[in-house]
C-alpha cells in the first residue's frame, strides 16, 4: 500500500543541507496498524509528508496505492486522513471548518455529526477553534482526519495533549476503526505503551535511515523482545495460576476479565501454540504487542 523506494529527502537552507531521509526503503501493507518509531528528528514527519505528497523526494520514489502522491495529489490524498503533529487551524467555528472539509471530501453534512459524535466534539461544534483546549483541538484534528472514511490514517502523535481518559478513548477508537473498517493506521508517537496496544507493524527510522521494518511478531522474535498476549477468560485468576508454572512465560498480569501474558520474543511461536492449547477458543487469544520500549531501546542502540 505504501512503498518507499530508496527515498532521500534533503532540506536545503542557507544554514546548509539537512538529510531528513537517507536512502529509506520500506513497505507498509494494507490493513495493518503501523508504528512509525524513531527519536526526534529521525524523519517521521518527513515520511508522512512524503506519503501525502506535500513534499517531493530529492531522490527515490514514493508510491501510495501504487500512485505517485506528488503527481496524483487528489487521488492519493482523498483516501488518506492526516492528523498533523502540531496542527494550526484557521480561526473559525469548529462546525464551519468540519463542514468545509466535508465539502472538499464530498461528504454529506450528516457525516460531520457522526464523526463529531465519534470524536466527542459534538458539544463544541458551535465554538470558535481558538477557544478550544489543546485536547479538543487534537480531537478536532482526528475528526478532520476521519472525515470521508479514509483508507489510510496518518496520525502524528495522536494522543499528545490528551488526558489519560481521552487517550484511552482515542486508542480504542483507532482499534475500532481498524477492526470494523479495515483502515490502515500509521502512527508516529513516542508514547510506546499506547502504540503497543494497537500496532502490529513497525517502521523504525533513525537519523533518516530505516533501521528496521516489518511485522511486529517477526521483529520481536528477531530481537528477542518480550511479547504480550491477551487472553479473555471468565476466571483469569485460575488460568494465571496454571500459566505461571510454564517456565517460558516471564510474567502474568490480571485485569478484570483479561489476562496479559508476557514472554520472550524468541519463544513467541511456542507460547502461542501452548496458550492456544490451554484456552481452546482461539478468538479469546490475541497477540497484542510486544514490549516496544525494549525494542525501541534495542533498535535505537544499533549501530
Amino acid at each position: 500500500m505504501i512503498v518507499f523506494d530508496n527515498v532521500t529527502k534533503i532540506y536545503r537552507s542557507r544554514a546548509g543541507s539537512i538529510y531528513a531521509l537517507r536512502n529509506a526503503s520500506f513497505k507498509i501493507p494494507g490493513g495493518v496498524a503501523a508504528g512509525l518509531l524513531g527519536p526526534n528528528g529521525a524523519g517521521k514527519t518527513t515520511s508522512f509528508k512524503l506519503i501525502l505528497g506535500f513534499i517531493k523526494p530529492t531522490r527515490g520514489k514514493v508510491h501510495v496505492f501504487g500512485q505517485d502522491p506528488v503527481k496524483e495529489e487528489h487521488e492519493v490524498r482523498s483516501k488518506i486522513g492526516y492528523l498533523p503533529e502540531k496542527p494550526i487551524y484557521p480561526q473559525v467555528k469548529v462546525w464551519s471548518l468540519l463542514r468545509h472539509i466535508a465539502k472538499l471530501r464530498n461528504v454529506a453534512s450528516q457525516d460531520v455529526y457522526r464523526i463529531a459524535r465519534l470524536t466527542g466534539i459534538t458539544r463544541y461544534l458551535d465554538f470558535n477553534i481558538k477557544s478550544l483546549s489543546r485536547g479538543y483541538i487534537q480531537r478536532l484534528g482526528l475528526a478532520i482526519a476521519l472525515l470521508g472514511d479514509p483508507e489510510i490514517l496518518l496520525l502524528d502523535e495522536p494522543t499528545a495533549n490528551l488526558d489519560p481518559i481521552s487517550r484511552k478513548e482515542i486508542i480504542s477508537l483507532i482499534r475500532d476503526l481498524m477492526s470494523e473498517l479495515g483502515v490502515t493506521v500509521i502512527i508516529a508517537t513516542h508514547i510506546l505503551p499506547e502504540l503497543q496496544q494497537v500496532a502490529n507493524y513497525i517502521v523504525f527510522i533513525r537519523k533518516g535511515q530505516v533501521v528496521e521494518y516489518g511485522d511486529i511478531n517477526t521483529i520481536v522474535t528477531r530481537y528477542r523482545v518480550t511479547a504480550i498476549f491477551r487472553i479473555r477468560v471468565s476466571d483469569p485468576r485460575r488460568l494465571a495460576s496454571k500459566l505461571i508454572l510454564f517456565d517460558k512465560i516471564k510474567a502474568v498480569e490480571i485485569a478484570s476479565d483479561t489476562l496479559l501474558v508476557k514472554a520472550t520474543g524468541e519463544d513467541v511461536d511456542e507460547i502461542q501454540y501452548f496458550l492456544r492449547e490451554i484456552v481452546g477458543d482461539e478468538t479469546k487469544l490475541e497477540l497484542v504487542s510486544s514490549e516496544l520500549g525494549e525494542l525501541y531501546e534495542k533498535l535505537a542502540g544499533l549501530n
Binding site: F54, H74, P87
Partner: peptide, 19 residues
C-alpha cells in the same frame, strides 16, 4: 497559511495545490 502550516489542513483533504 503556508508558513504556519494551515495549508496542510486543506491539502490533506485531497485539495490539490493547483486547486
Amino acid at each position: 497559511e503556508l508558513s504556519k502550516g494551515t495549508i496542510q489542513v486543506y491539502l490533506a483533504t485531497g485539495l490539490t495545490r493547483k486547486e
